[in-house]
Each structure stands twice: as C-alpha cells, then as structure tokens.
Design a protein around this nucleic acid. Structure first.
Length: 436
RNA sequence: GGCGCUGUAACUCAACUGGCAGAGUGCCGCGUUGUCUGCGCGGAAGUUGGGGGUUCAACUCCCCUCAGCGUCGCCA
C-alpha cells in the first residue's frame, strides 16, 4: 500500500488508505494500552489512535505542541462521527516541548486568558484554533479587497513608510533618525495615493500605518493595517460611498463563503449588506440626543457612545449593521477635504462608515484645484512650502478625486465581536507594548 | 497623560473583622482499550509584583514604586 501525504481536511477522501500527516500535538490522552493524540495542522485537526506497544512508547515521549509526523490508516470513528487515523508510526520532529504556560488546546482556557497573558505568550497563543482563525479571516478580507478593486481596474501600490512630513498634523507622528536628518513613520499613505491618482487614476494599498497617539483603548493600535483606496474622475463623494458599499459587501460575502468554520468559532454572523443608509452628522446628533436625556452632544463629531447609539438606532429601524455618517464640518477634517457649502456653515464632502458601533472607515472627496488647496493649507495656519512635493501633482493638473481607508483590525474586531482590537493584530503595538 | 480598579502557583481564581497561603486546570509518578473538559490514586509547585511602615501578628491596614485592566481626550 502506498502512503499518501494528506492534510486533516482530506481524511474522508482516504478512508482505508495508508496516509502520512504532520502537525503539532494539540492534546494527549493516554489510557494505558490505548492512547489518543490530536494533532493540528494548517487546515484543522485530526485524532490519531495508538494501540501498539511500539507506537505507544513514542507517544509517551511526546508532549503538547511537539511537531510530529504520523503514519497510519484512515478509519471511521467507532461512533460514526468522522474519521481518525489508526497510528502505525509516530516520529517526533523536534525535542518534546516543555509544559505550556497556557493551555491552547482547550477553547475554554484560551477564552479565559487575560489580554496581557494572551499577548505575552503570543508565539504560542497564535497557534490556538480560535486565535489563528482571526488571521485567516483577515487574510480573506485582504484577498477580497484586492480582488474587488483589481476587477475595477485599480492598481496596487506600495508607498514609502519613511516620510519627511506628516499628512494632516492631527495624529502624532513617530520621529526617527534618518542619517542624521529628522524623518517620520507614515501615519497614512494619503499624499502618495493622491499623487498616484495622477499617474494610475485608480489605486489601492494594504500596508501598516503608524500613529504615535498616547492612548490605550480597545480600539486603538499604534501600528495597524490600513486598506487604502483612492480614485480619480469622480463626480462627488457619492461615487466613493457607492464603491465602498459594494466593496464591503464583497468582503463580507467572501469571508462568509471561505471561513464558515472560523466564523462559527466566534458565533459571528456576517452582516448582509444591502444599500447602507447614510445620515448627516447633524441628523445623527439629533438622533443621539433623542435617546439621551442630556441634549448636549455637539454637532462636530461623535464620541464612542454616540457611535454606539447611532448604530443601535439603525439596527432597530433599518435592520442594518452599517451606517454612513456624512457632512462632517470642515474644521474636524484634514485640510485637503473638499468643502460642501451647506446651511451657512462649511461642511465637507467626507464620510465615516460605522460598523456595529465603531468607525471602520473614513473617506471623502479631496480638493483637486491647486489654488484652492494652497488656500486651504494657509487657512489652517500651515506653510504651503512644507507641502511642495505633494502640491506638485496639483500644479500639473489633478482630476476630481477621493478615497477612503478601512482599518483591517477594526473590521475584524467588529465582525468577530472581539473585546479589543489588539486581539486582531498578530503582534500589537500599543503605548505599553513593543514585544513580542 | 487624567481618573477609577486590580496585582496571590505556569494559567484562571479563592483566603471572613489583621490570626497556620488554598482550589481547579496544567505539570510529574503509578494504574486504566474508546477518550475527546478522559477517569482513579499519589506528588512537586509561592520572595502573595517590589520597597518601606504600623502591629505580638500583614495577602489583608498606611506610604512609595512598578505592572496590568477599565475609562476619557484622539482616531481607522
């Protein structure tokens, strides 16, 4: 009989055959003259059954997480629920692992871990089925994001992360020493993606961005993955919200199709995305005030509590997990935001997308006329000379354009109902943590 | 960074009004042929975050310090 190399998901196709499989030992149950070994591989897990003295002696040397190669015959489980491998030979591929600080094989134990323990032992906790599922889902989000945009003739770009100036001045920048000169880690690919609209018309980028903000919350990271989009020749920000609407629909559909098991580990329900409703900021504030006894919410921005109330309202009234907030005042947006003169006060052609109570996207149309942009920069008390290189593309003609950015860890956190965005980053960087 | 809370075994947590530092899981040993939270018996495991103080006596009260969690500002 020839031995075939398989992975755990292919068991049913090899009933009665001799197979070889490799993975890490996830659990060991030694019953004396019978032992059960569950191994976890890239695709799932499988139970090995050992009942021969020679194999049992090897099993007794093994410990949880030891990588092994196993050979045996695929058989149906006696209870009829799935398949297992009747073990003929087990090879330990490394020194047996010492006892584990956290029990990653048991879901209840992993769920009960303190966030700091989860992160301190990250190389280990990332192996647990539920933790790694987060990152499989994020990979599918990225895949779907790329797929959708490529189909619409967007080109993927890679902008520099070492930059000479900040974009908006709002978020704090990490300073670094660049051969004796001052440089910064990019807080956003904003300027570069706009410049690339001049060259490629439609671009996107999936890359880390850096924010040196000194807050430690469940929705902030100092390094996170920004899924950026920018497109030219738009008529208004409506073109962007339409695109974003279809994009998130595609991303959710793809995750729903590709990751049913990963989603079920979290009991997560993927939202059905129809036409995402939109409200202006001032309408949103009125709605929030109608729920709160104090009528004091300001009409400049929403606080986290307000974001929650708005989302609850729209879930109740329109059965949607997603809602656009539009018409932010120019004053709370970066200088390049396109103004929208409305009701006496200057509003902007920008929007946020909220998902189950959290902002996952910000975007908008940008100013594309050179003279207007220079005036906007001066209006913020900034020096146009500092933005000389960025302004070049406007000097030589830029079409009406705009874009948005989706926070990968945030959309994953909200989808899976994670208590902190830090759990959605492989190795999160926050104000207190730089390792592992 | 402000405010609040918490630090006890590898992990998750108990310990009354200040009175012998414990449990479950994991780990080690022995037994167990259908486990999947294996089961049974036995065992090891602690500078109670650190430092100082009050007291006959401190995990417990006070001060300092370090760390973690929550929350707010800001943002994706």
């Amino acid at each position: 009989m020839t031995t075939v190399e398989i992975s755990s998901t292919q068991l049913s196709q090899h009933t009665g055959s001799a197979v070889r499989i490799h993975g890490h030992i996830q659990s060991l149950r030694d019953m004396g003259n019978l032992a059960f070994v569950v191994i976890r591989d890239m695709s799932g897990a499988v139970q090995l059954v050992a009942d021969e003295a020679e194999v049992l002696s090897v099993v007794r040397l093994a410990t949880c997480e030891t990588p092994v190669s196993a050979e045996g015959v695929v058989v149906a489980k006696p209870n009829g629920q799935g398949f297992e491998i009747h073990l003929k030979e087990l090879t330990l591929l490394s020194t047996p692992a010492p006892s584990l600080p956290v029990e990653i094989g048991k879901q209840s134990k992993v769920d009960g871990l303190a966030l700091s323990t989860m992160l301190d032992y990250r190389p280990l906790t990332l192996r647990s089925p539920k933790v790694r599922a987060i990152f499989k889902i994020e990979a599918v989000f990225c895949e779907a994001f790329r797929e959708f945009l490529r189909e619409r003739q967007f080109t993927e770009i890679h902008s520099p992360k070492i930059v000479a100036t900040g974009t908006e001045g709002g978020a704090q920048l990490f300073k670094l020493n660049y051969f004796g000169r001052e440089a910064f880690l990019a807080q956003s690919p904003q300027f570069y993606k706009q410049i690339m609209v001049g060259a490629l018309e439609r671009v996107f980028e999936v890359a880390p961005v850096y924010r040196a903000e000194e807050h430690d919350t469940t929705r902030h990271l100092n390094e996170y993955i920004s899924m950026d989009v920018e497109m030219g020749f738009i008529e208004s920000e409506r073109d962007l919200t339409d695109l974003l609407n279809k994009l998130v629909r595609h991303m959710f559909e793809k995750v729903s199709q590709s990751c049913p098991e990963e989603l079920s580990l979290f009991g997560a329900k993927v939202p059905e995305v129809a036409v995402i409703p939109a409200v202006t900021l001032s309408e949103a504030v009125d709605i929030i005030n109608s729920y709160q006894k104090k009528g004091s919410a300001e009409k400049t921005d929403l606080d986290p509590e307000g974001e929650k109330i708005i989302c609850e309202h729209f879930l109740k009234t329109e059965n949607t997990d997603l809602v656009f907030i539009t018409g932010y005042p120019l004053s709370v947006r970066p200088f390049y935001a396109m103004p929208l003169p409305a009701e006496g006060e200057m509003s902007s052609r920008s929007f946020d997308l909220l998902f189950r109570g959290l902002e996952i996207t910000t975007g908008g149309q940008r100013i594309h006329r050179h003279e207007e942009l220079v005036a906007a920069i001066k209006g913020r008390g900034l020096d146009p000379e500092a933005f000389k290189d960025y302004l070049q593309c406007f000097q030589y003609g830029m079409p009406p354009h705009g874009g948005f950015a989706i926070g990968l860890e945030r959309i994953a956190k909200q989808l899976l109902g994670l208590p902190s965005v830090k759990l959605a980053a492989l190795f999160p960087r926050d104000i207190n943590r730089m390792t592992p």
